[in-house]
């Protein structure tokens, strides 16, 4: 019992859980309309597409793959799917869109893994190009998505809960399962933690890293489809600026930017937290830009905490040691 308590205390999820809980409680108390099912369902719906992106980004980061092109990729996928759907069938649109997303992932992987270009800058550049492609494909205007599975998933509801939320949950469960319970997921974490060591241990590291980029790209593409379906129109500006939000959420959740440590549940909580913050601030008639400011500040704090954790110096790890009654264990 004591060990289990200690383990729970030391979990990297503690910080983000507390942050989410505190923000939910405060907003529910302070802002009258915040606690309604409808509003909470709204937070869920807003979180769905970002959350799907975050799941992909978490898998990628676990494998040591930094992909900053996710927002651009989402916009591009949405635009391509909408244009293709308008000319052929909605299903064809989805297939071609996701195919394009995956190709982007392959290019990212090749540039950063084969040519060892700094992943952050390379994928940022890719983001610019993808945004451009979205404008080219959609002729700089929105392309309507008025029927087909995208609209169903994007706009359908069970009670107050949109289908897209279920889609998000399924993606998150799947992503978490891959990372925790499959040998592939464990290999991704090994490669992300130290690719040279993983190679020596007999893991073929390149394919694993490629999979990281593809997971991220595919998730971004699906997020783009969700966005288009929800709005009923694919706009080239879609998801603009959300890469920062998604990465902040993932890092807030306890995933390491250096690879090897990743938690899908943490990312999900991170996304919910940032969206709660945003919605709460809007409803409280406080400038919603506080959300961006807090997000940036917490990003820095979160990265520092993960760094401390890998050195065994996270305050939570110290607390765990005290609970276990073995202070000597902590270096």
């Amino acid at each position: 019992m004591r060990h289990r308590l200690a383990g729970a205390l030391a979990s990297s999820l503690v910080y983000i859980s507390v942050a989410l809980l505190v923000s939910l409680v405060i907003f529910t108390v302070v802002v009258p309309r915040f606690g309604t099912t409808r509003n909470l369902a709204g937070i869920g719906a807003a979180s769905a597409s970002l959350g799907v992106m975050a799941v992909g980004a978490t898998l990628a980061l676990g494998a040591g793959a930094i992909d900053f092109s996710i927002a651009g990729n989402a916009a591009m996928t949405g635009s391509i799917a909408a244009v293709v759907a308008a000319n052929t069938s909605p299903e064809m649109g989805i297939i071609v869109g996701l195919l394009a997303a995956v190709i982007v992932g392959l290019v990212n992987a090749t540039v950063t893994i084969r040519f060892r270009v700094n992943a952050f800058i390379a994928t940022l550049a890719m983001a610019g190009s993808l945004r451009g492609i979205s404008f080219v494909v959609s002729n700089s205007v929105g392309v309507f998505v008025d029927s087909g599975p995208l609209v169903t998933i994007g706009q359908g509801k069970v009670g107050d809960i949109p289908y897209s939320v279920f889609f998000f949950v399924v993606t998150a469960v799947l992503g978490g399962w891959i990372l925790r319970s499959t040998t592939l997921g464990r290999s991704m974490l090994a490669v992300g933690g130290d690719s040279a060591a993983a190679r020596i241990a007999g893991i073929r590291t390149q394919p694993v890293q490629y999979i990281g980029y593809i997971a991220s790209a595919l998730a971004a593409g699906m997020a783009g489809l969700l966005l288009a379906g929800r709005a009923g129109v694919a706009v080239p500006q879609a998801a603009s600026g959300t890469e920062l939000l998604v990465f902040s959420a993932v890092l807030l959740g306890g995933t390491s930017l250096n690879g090897g440590r990743a938690t899908v549940l943490g990312s999900v909580l991170g996304i919910l937290f940032l969206n709660t913050l945003y919605t709460g601030l809007v409803l409280a008639k406080v400038s919603p830009y506080w959300q961006t400011i807090i997000q940036g500040a917490l990003l820095i704090v979160a990265v520092r905490l993960v760094q401390l954790r890998s050195e065994g110096r996270d305050p939570l790890q110290r607390l765990e040691a005290i609970v276990r009654g073995r202070m000597t264990d902590v270096r």
Binding site: R186, G193, A197, G260
Partner: peptide
């Protein structure tokens, strides 16, 4: 002699 362990696992 080279480190061949992944410290986070």
């Amino acid at each position: 002699q080279e480190r061949s362990l992944v410290p986070s696992l």
